[in-house]
Computed example of a mutant assay.
Amino acid sequence: GTSPLALAARTDADAPSRYPDPDSTDLRAAIGALHGIDPALLVMGTGSDELLHLAAQGYAGPGDEVLFSRFSFVVYDIAARRCGATPVEAPDRDYGSDVDALLAAVNPRTRVVFLANPNNPTGTFLPAAEVARLHAGLPGDVLLVLDQAYAEYLDPADDDHGLALAAAHGNVLVTRTFSKIYGLAGERVGWATGGAALIDTLNRIRGPFNVTNSGQAMALAATADQAFVTHARDHNRAVRAAFAEAVNALGNHGLRAVPSEANFVLVLFEGALSAEAAYAGLAERGYMVRWLPNQGLRDALRITIGTREQMEAIAAALREMAEVA
């Protein structure tokens, strides 16, 4: 859902006939205050997608390579190709990023490394020590982009220290979004932070009015409503754990939940019931989930966490289908 404060702010936003603040000044100030970041080291984007594209555009081009793990966010491949660079996939480790495999794939042509943490679409997570090890192993002229779209779903104690890395090193960019836990996907609001030179580069090539009036107003109100964020995180953690337990109880039918720190669970289908059949069966029952054969996940479904009642119904439907497959 969306914070009631954010929904109320939509009606109070400047008229759509007026251009928005091109620098999102008030919103950057609020984000900076929340996370302890100098607003001058923040840049806003049309969702974090724009910022991911800008990172590749600003630091890679023809003849260069953009590196990421297998089963990562599909935008990384697109961003690399869009700027003329070559996308390179490193092998995964049980559907998650493998630091050793990433470092082994680095060569003199590598310009940008993308890491989604937690990962999309698998939900896997690298702890702070592994993220630090990845950064330490990269040449200083390679940009590490930490895509933290799902970071707010983490217990604060599990923070991967990406913001601290970005504050301390000139080759680390962290991106975040208001599309996930804040529930503002339709408004397309994202932000990034890094060293002054990185932010200057992104500001030079971003769109001039890239966050709308309503997007700025709603994101500003959402930032102030951290009680909503805490409630959403606690709900997600509890319902996700119960759903994963219900899926893993179907292990004798070949179903397995990949451990997730995001607001979804990747369910593997390794028995008689195929992911494609489960996808169709859930659709018939009114549930839309993600089947991703084009991302190499033909035998898996990415299932977003909803209400407790919805997730219990989906688990029951999976059991019903598995028992007759």
Rank of each mutant, 00 (worst) to 15 (best):
L292C: 05
A313C: 02
R308F: 01
H253K: 10
V265C: 15
S260T: 05
A242G: 03
L318S: 01
V324D: 02
L266C: 15
G254C: 08
A317V: 01
N263I: 02
R298T: 13
I303V: 14
W291N: 08
V265Q: 10
N248V: 14
L273E: 03
A246L: 07
R302W: 02
V267I: 12
V247Y: 01
P259D: 04
M311C: 04
A275E: 02
E320T: 14
A316R: 01
I305G: 02
E245M: 02
L268Y: 10
I303C: 04
N263G: 08
E284A: 13
E261Y: 15
V267G: 15
L297W: 10
F269D: 03
V267D: 13
A262P: 12
A246I: 08
A249W: 09
A275P: 02
L268V: 11
V267N: 14
R298L: 06
A277W: 06
P259N: 05
M321T: 05
A283E: 12
A241S: 15
S260I: 01
D299W: 00
R256P: 06
H235D: 09
P259L: 08
L282K: 11
V239I: 15
E270L: 04
N236A: 13
A244E: 13
G306I: 01
V247Q: 06
L273I: 06
N248C: 09
D234K: 02
